[in-house]
């Protein structure tokens, strides 16, 4: 066996040991060493040279990057997640014909979809979605993310929240928690437009707080314009400022001027 390959495999074993011990600092150290070592292999993307150990090297590298992605979720580093995911992606797309499919593929793709959803990058979400085959779409991990997006767009927020209980993979919990925060802001934004007032207990339930105090803190920080009296939250103030009827004079002047200019050009 190639000495370089043995070195990487041994280091990776130590990485995995540290990973199981949840010693994430050591993991990160090993990971950066591993990444440097991986650059030495010519069979990996973007070169894809046909070396005798190509399949073995590709599989090992894919395994390393898969662990890197999961690690970035564990240490809650979204930037690292994005970087590692993009390094991993060629192994799923371009090396598809050379390797047997990884069992981690769908969970990680689903995780990435979830990340895009959390970061509200919906356009990229759909771009990624187009790349998936219909069998991939049937996979519970992917399906989970797709359904979340749908419920999110529709506004069925409690479906989003209840999805936390049915996560297909333990790593998903981190993003689901982030999503819950986004959902709370969304609900707050919607309620302020949809209701005249809400009783405090109802508002607390809706905004997913466990105690009234948390709710009051939240209102104070995020929505100081909401009014609290007689045990209810009034959204009147926020509403009054919104529909402000104004004659769009400047816009009209601009339009009329442009008509005049265009007409002059024709005549």
């Amino acid at each position: 066996m190639d000495p370089k390959l043995t070195e990487v495999s041994q280091l990776f074993e130590r990485f995995k040991a540290a990973f199981i011990r949840k010693d994430f600092n050591t993991c990160e150290n090993f990971l950066s060493q591993l990444k440097v070592l991986l650059t030495g292999f010519r069979s990996l993307p973007p070169l894809f040279e046909d070396t005798p150990n190509a399949v073995h090297e590709l599989t090992l590298a894919r395994d390393i990057y898969e662990h890197a992605v999961v690690l970035s979720v564990k240490v809650e580093d979204q930037d690292a997640f994005e970087r590692d995911f993009f390094q991993l992606k060629p192994y799923y797309t371009d090396a598809r014909n050379r390797l047997p499919q990884s069992p981690q593929e769908y969970p990680i793709l689903g995780l990435n979809l979830l990340r895009l959803l959390v970061q509200n990058r919906i356009a990229e979400f759909h771009t990624e979605l187009e790349l998936l085959s219909s069998t991939a779409l049937e996979n519970p991990c992917i399906k989970h993310a797709v359904e979340l997006e749908q419920s999110f767009m529709e506004g069925a927020y409690n479906r989003v929240l209840s999805a936390r209980q049915t996560v297909p993979h333990e790593t998903y919990v981190y993003f689901m928690d982030l999503l819950a925060k986004t959902v709370r802001d969304e609900i707050a934004g919607c309620s302020e437009k949809a209701y005249d007032y809400l009783s405090i207990s109802n508002a607390r339930q809706m905004l997913l707080f466990t105690s009234d105090k948390e709710l009051l803190n939240y209102i104070e920080e995020e929505h100081p314009e909401w009014e609290i009296k007689d045990g209810s939250v009034y959204f009147q103030k926020a509403k009054e400022s919104a529909p402000c009827k104004e004659i769009p004079s400047l816009q009209l002047i601009n339009q009329t001027l442009s008509y005049a200019r265009e007409l002059e050009r024709i005549v």
Partner: peptide, 13 residues
Amino acid sequence: IADAESIVSKAIR
């Protein structure tokens, strides 16, 4: 019902 409520409120917003 809860679904309908949040869907309606989003549509209003």
